[in-house]
Design a protein around this nucleic acid. Sequence first.
DNA 1: AGTCGATACATGACACATCAACTTCATTTG
DNA 2: CAAATGAAGTTGATGTGTCATGTATCGACT
Lengths: 160, 160
Amino acid sequence: MTRKWLDETEERAWRAYRRMFTLLESTLASELAEHTGLSMADYTVLSNLVEVEGRRWRLTALAEHIRWSQSRLSHQITRMEERGMVARERAEGDARGAWVVLTKAGLRAIAEATPTHLSGVRRHMIDLLTRDQLRELGDVGEIVVQHLTEDRPGPGSTMA
Amino acid sequence: MTRKWLDETEERAWRAYRRMFTLLESTLASELAEHTGLSMADYTVLSNLVEVEGRRWRLTALAEHIRWSQSRLSHQITRMEERGMVARERAEGDARGAWVVLTKAGLRAIAEATPTHLSGVRRHMIDLLTRDQLRELGDVGEIVVQHLTEDRPGPGSTMA
DNA sequence: AGTCGATACATGACACATCAACTTCATTTG
DNA sequence: CAAATGAAGTTGATGTGTCATGTATCGACT
């Protein structure tokens, strides 16, 4: 039962990583909610819309990009639509499809939220680390990501 | 709008980190669910119970430890109680309080789940990294964690 | 044209998380 | 010691995610 699965260095890395995520996420989420009224889910959708040509995504493509299930995205878009931040448009040339497009209100919202959010990212993480640590973190992330995308399952995720 | 908030190195680190988490989490969650029928939430509770003296926690203490709200934990415990993995016991000496204790079934469940889970952690992350990278990751995590616990808010989190 | 299997998306039921009360007991304090 | 304050947990309403399924359309093949 008390057999060790990870040695000391490994366990320390794993625990620290996990705790970092938990704390960081909840801090960023509450700062974002407090300053802008957006949830992380909202932010994910909006920020992905704003940084793309035409400010529109096909539902499925976006879902895949942010690793959400189609269903989750569809529900989320429905709710955001009700709040006027995005709109659906029928896709020309494919009568099944639809675009999610950013509205003026959505654009305003993300424009306001971005500084808040990224300054939090900076204060609570980026600025605490050296250039080397940032590079290491990038390397580590990319290694793991690459491993996990060498075919692997699809959606069923938790966030962006 | 296209003003840069993070430089290239910073943005790469941030994106890689985030993507790593998303992928890792969903992979580990589905492997765990498939092999053991437990959710990550179940695993979090069980693993924290098993590694402590007496295999019991006071509700509030556990909630704080894993950074959940009391309410969330209470609901989760109720559901796990229905499945027979944990039980509540009234606390002696404090008639308001209650202990969550691990049951035999819960012990069996976590004993089975741990190898599955940690081998996933290993395969999908630990074994991909060098010792130095593990140490760096540990350092980075601890730096951020320390910063975020220098008073900071409480619960309102998302996971363990 | 007609069938068939895939694709794009929506939906409703259910599981889980969050939020704001609420209950019960402990502790402080005037 | 009574009243107030606070701590420990619970509960129910509501918001959000998941799963299985439904509907429409597309594309290919006959």
